[in-house]
Amino acid sequence: MANDVAILGRSTHVRGRVTGAASVEIAGRVDGEVDVSGDVTVEAGGLVSANVTGRRLVIRGAIKGDLNGSESIALEDGAKVVGDVRAPRIAIAQGALLRGYVQTANGGSAPRAKATTASRGAVPPPRASTPKHVEHKREVEKPKAAAPAHKAKAPPPPVVPALKKGAKGARRVGAIAGMSKKR
């Protein structure tokens, strides 16, 4: 039926999140998070102003945000990245420019089936549009988050929308409570 890939051409500008169970090629500009379970390629001239998460990341463009690869990340010649770079395997070419923390996680590919039920229970019900995908990602991300070296660092990206959702929900509840008080 369709290509399981999104191609954002040179003149294409996305303001918002790009998510899904497919691969993405970015030659244009994305002002928002990119979080897919497929591969992400940011071409020369491509710009992303937020975190990028995917399986294999190949960067030739400019990124202001953290890069998370469940398999690998390659910063190629011409890449400009301000942000942290994390993947089991990382390649940085001569000519790639980087400001940020780099962490290869060896063994990160080994015990990926160990997603704890506890952490999954804490997660709000996934959105109707991407249920499978969200859960799967969490499993992939788990071993990395469990490594003690990461403890102090930011939690894996999938948690972020969960927090936001929670915050929004809390606010809504507060607003309703406030209204009922007035009455």
Binding site: L47, S49, A74, K80, V82, R89, A93, L98, Y101, A149
Partner: peptide, 28 residues
């Protein structure tokens, strides 16, 4: 300064290269 990292090497640490991002990504 600069770094070239072969895929398969174990690395952890901060890289601090001196460069400017494209203007579209700066500021904000």
């Amino acid at each position: 300064g600069g770094i070239a990292l072969d895929e398969g090497a174990e690395f952890s640490g901060r890289i601090d290269a001196d460069f400017d991002l494209p203007p579209e990504l700066e500021g904000g």
